[in-house]
Amino acid sequence: MKKKLSRWTAVFTVLLLCMGLCSGLPVSAAYENTHINSGNPRVDIVEIAKSQIGYLEGSLEGTVKGNNNYTKYNVWNGRISGYGSDGYGYPWCHTFVSWCANQAGIGTGVIPRTAGTGTGRSFFVRQGTYQQSAANGGSYVPQAGDIIYYGSGSSPSHVGIVSGCNGSTVYAIEGNCSDMVTTRAIGLSDGYIIGYGV
């Protein structure tokens, strides 16, 4: 009788799980993109990036802190030979941007799928959609949804997604900042900003 009851309990549990999956209930809620795209790519990429704030590198779920660059963004982007963590342990600030763009339905003809900040910046320059920062002589005021490049001169070393600008301060969401997805507020004329992919 006990064996029969255990078997029926197991069957019932499996049925409940299947019903949950079929009805669209999340299996794991940690840093899922739950945003439903509105059709406005600027709004969508920012909302998707916001849903990832707090994600920690070190596991696919983003809940275990590590320092090996292993993230779901790099797994999505693909292996790059020569890096640890089975080829997924490479700097991930641009793969975060590319993943958010993909989730927002933004094609690679608008925001490239790349791990390289230099490759990303060069893409916008070639497209004619790159704007110099104030520190580099530009007058462009960034908007939510722009891609912000940081570094020195024209050599980017980091990247994020602009979430807003109040005329003197730029707000951004960035991956691979202290091994996590986090936010930044930086002066519009700060020399660390080199430009924007618009």
Rank of each mutant, 00 (worst) to 15 (best):
R7T: 12
V64C: 06
G197L: 01
I161H: 02
R113E: 10
T95Q: 03
N77R: 04
K50N: 10
S98K: 10
G62T: 03
Y140M: 13
S155F: 11
N74K: 05
S85F: 04
Q52Y: 12
A144S: 15
V14Q: 15
Y90I: 07
T117C: 12
A104S: 10
H94Q: 13
G151L: 14
E57T: 14
S133A: 03
Y171D: 07
T9D: 15
C93N: 00
G116T: 03
I80Y: 09
T114D: 11
G89T: 09
V14E: 10
G195K: 02
K3Q: 09
N74F: 07
G191L: 06
C177R: 04
I106A: 15
T129D: 03
I48Y: 07
Y171T: 10
T169A: 00
L25W: 15
W92H: 01
T63M: 11
A101C: 14
G187C: 01
V159Y: 07
W76A: 00
F124E: 07
R184F: 07
D44V: 01
S28D: 13
G138A: 14
N40R: 10
I194D: 00
S157W: 15
T129F: 05
Y130Q: 00
Y192F: 03
A115C: 05
W8I: 14
N166R: 04
A134M: 11
A135K: 11
T129C: 08
I80F: 08
S6C: 05
L56M: 11
N176A: 00
S133L: 00
K2L: 10
G87W: 11
Y171A: 02
I173L: 12
I36R: 07
G66E: 11
S163F: 13
P142R: 06
G145E: 13
A185G: 09
T117H: 02
V97K: 11
T9C: 11
G128L: 02
E61S: 04
S85V: 09
K2N: 09
S155D: 14
K50Y: 09
L188E: 03
G20Y: 09
Y192P: 00
G78R: 10
C18Q: 03
S154H: 02
I53D: 06
C177W: 02
S133W: 01
V125A: 02
G84R: 14
N40I: 09
I36K: 06
G160C: 08
E61Q: 08
Y149G: 01
L21G: 02
I111K: 01
T95S: 08
A10W: 08
T13C: 15
Q132V: 09
H35W: 10
W8V: 07
Y31I: 05
